[in-house]
Nucleic acid binder design. Structure first.
Length: 424
DNA sequence: TCTGGGGTCCTAGGACCC
DNA sequence: TCTGGGGTCCTAGGACCC
């Protein structure tokens, strides 16, 4: 029996959520992502704004030129997460086999649920209506025998539609579509395929697998499978709904104007490190590879990594690694556009090489639990390790205060600013 | 046009070990 | 001595997705 996969994709999700909070936006050209003159790109555009050529990833300033009368609104990640949770709740009632693929889309495995919900189209329509009723949001649904076809399907069904591709009809459904409709085919692959005279999925499906493998390596094999609607390649395969740990956690910041001041760069790196470390602790994960990212004015971007001999989830370790990487890789003069801190090689435990004995490690963890609670209430910047405020001192004394992951808990001082109002 | 932020996966070279 | 082959780790960069 073929699988029955449903892909649910929320329509103009960020814009629709903003409309829930401000109904006056409805029916207007709305751009979510920031102010019209900011450095940044469009996160989402309403269908009205799209008519002027505005789309996500477009620079905000360009969007403003294309659609001068558009309303530009700041994004609200908390609102989107909250709505995403409601979406999940609705879906989860139809089957426990739900997997949120991102904040606004999900896969459901509906194989064998016809006795419970009826035939596929009836199930899909029930889901569609339940979503509208309970979240006030529109979505589009794709039904098919593979994730890949279901995803392409929901895209074809947009906006606010339902589309089912019957088993056996995958190839004829895909054949006339533009190659770009295949998830994983972006600008570069498209250009490359176009140069070979391949424009539609059907052209690709007719090609010899070996030819594609010679031309594109393993990616070529995956492509051949995709052209036939198979969940070929690694990540599309597998159970729906299996929860997995994240593989990396990162935060980055683009300055509104390029910065060449060391202290300012270090201050931002400390903050980014603290945010990453906090999320490592929330996930109960330890990272062994800390990476610094630098982007310059001309957009050239470098990443420099350092692997530790033990995993860590503590601010000081990340800060030490990242400041050291900056020291070694930044010339001290070139203006910086973006800074990033990335934690990779994530594990559920520290590994064998921990520098701390277990009681010390537990004292540290408990100190950080307290710190994280304060940060949850008052914001990340409300509390820092005393040392992390002394980036200047490090320069002057030529010693690195972060060499050890919190030599002892008493080294950390809580510093709560006098009158800082809690958010909300 | 002047390019965010959070991710995943893949490739490729060099080190290092057996 | 002029020369292997495989496996794994580390690092850097890039395509792609939402």
């Amino acid at each position: 029996m073929p699988r029955l996969i449903c892909h649910v994709d929320m329509d103009a999700f960020f814009v629709s959520v903003e409309e829930l909070f401000d109904p006056s936006l409805k029916g207007k050209a709305v751009v979510v992502g920031g102010k019209a003159d900011q450095r940044g790109v469009v996160s989402a555009a309403s269908y009205e704004a799209r008519r002027y050529g505005v789309h996500s990833a477009l620079p905000l300033r360009t969007a403003a030129k294309l659609c001068p009368h558009a309303i530009f609104v700041e994004g609200h990640p908390e609102r989107y997460r909250e709505c995403s949770q409601k979406v999940f709740t609705v879906l989860n009632r139809f089957t426990p086999q739900v997997e949120m693929a991102s904040i606004d889309e999900a896969y459901l495995d509906l194989t064998g649920t016809d006795r419970l919900h009826g035939p596929p189209l009836r199930t899909a329509h029930a889901l569609h209506e339940a979503m509208k009723r309970e979240t006030n949001l529109n979505c589009s649904l794709g039904l098919a025998s593979s994730r890949l076809v279901a995803k392409v399907c929901s895209d074809q069904a947009k906006p606010n539609g339902v589309l089912w591709v019957l088993p056996g009809q995958e190839a004829p459904f895909l054949a006339p579509l533009d190659i770009r409709k295949i998830p994983g085919v972006g600008k570069v692959t498209e250009a490359s395929l176009n140069s070979m005279g391949i424009h539609h999925v059907g052209d690709l499906a007719r090609l010899d697998e070996n030819f594609l493998r010679e031309r594109f390596g393993r990616w070529g094999l995956a492509l051949a499978g995709k052209a036939k609607g198979q969940d070929a390649g690694s990540w599309f395969d597998g159970e729906i709904g299996a929860l997995e740990d994240p593989k990396s956690i990162s935060h980055e910041h683009t300055f509104s104007e390029d910065v060449a001041d060391r202290t300012e760069l270090e201050t931002v790196l400390v903050k980014l490190s603290e945010m990453v470390a906090k999320r490592l602790r929330e996930h109960k994960l330890y990272s062994r590879t800390i990476q610094l990212k630098l982007r310059y004015r001309d957009f050239t971007t470098i990443t420099r990594a350092h692997s530790l001999d033990h995993g860590t989830q503590f601010d000081g370790d990340l800060i030490a690694a990242v400041l050291d990487l900056l020291q070694r890789n930044w010339d001290g003069a070139t203006p910086v556009r973006l800074l990033g801190v990335h934690a990779g090689s994530l594990k559920r435990n520290e590994g064998q090489m921990s520098l701390l004995d277990e009681p010390a490690a537990e004292r540290l963890r408990s100190a950080f639990r307290a710190i994280d609670k304060i940060r949850d209430r008052f914001g990340v910047s409300s509390i820092s390790l005393a040392r992390s405020m002394q980036t200047n001192l490090r320069e002057k004394t030529h010693e690195n205060p972060y060499d050890l992951p919190g030599k002892a808990p008493q080294e950390k001082e809580e510093s709560i600013p006098p009158a800082r109002k809690p958010k909300n």
